[in-house]
């Protein structure tokens, strides 16, 4: 499984998200899902509350960059936004990190992309 390397600081307008890069800016769906599943719910709630209000700004910022390889700070920002989607469903739908009555996640293989 692909490992997430330490990648750069935030673009200036997103400095308040900088302390989230360590621990939440993850490169693969597998890593993001594991992160959510093993988090405490209050952590997810806090992430949701901080990142959620900035999601439109993040998309607008990244949309100035062409598709392809992003510079490191923008890559971190993208990964935080993808992580937000993973976190949001737990906060808005489940009220807990993991799905209730779901198939065991260790038996569900997410192919690397």
């Amino acid at each position: 499984m692909q490992q997430t390397a330490q990648i750069g600081a935030m673009p200036a307008e997103f400095r308040e998200l900088e302390n989230l890069v360590q621990g939440w800016s993850l490169a693969t769906e597998h890593e993001r899902r594991e992160r959510r599943a093993t988090a405490e719910f209050p952590e997810l709630r806090a992430y949701y509350d901080v990142v959620g209000p900035r999601m439109r700004d993040i998309a607008a910022h990244l949309d100035a960059y062409p598709m392809g390889i992003l510079p490191a700070p923008q890559k971190s920002l993208l990964q935080l936004a993808l992580m937000y989607m993973e976190v949001a469903i737990a906060v808005e739908f489940y009220g807990q990190p993991e799905l209730r009555d779901g198939f065991p996640r260790h038996r569900w293989v997410i192919s690397p992309r």
Binding site: M55, I58, A59, A60, L62, D63, Y65, M67, L70, L78, A81, L82, M85, E86, A88, I89
Partner: peptide, 12 residues
């Protein structure tokens, strides 16, 4: 995706 925003939207 034609933009990064679109990519983010697909994730949900």
């Amino acid at each position: 995706p034609k933009s990064w925003g679109q990519r983010i939207g697909q994730e949900f």
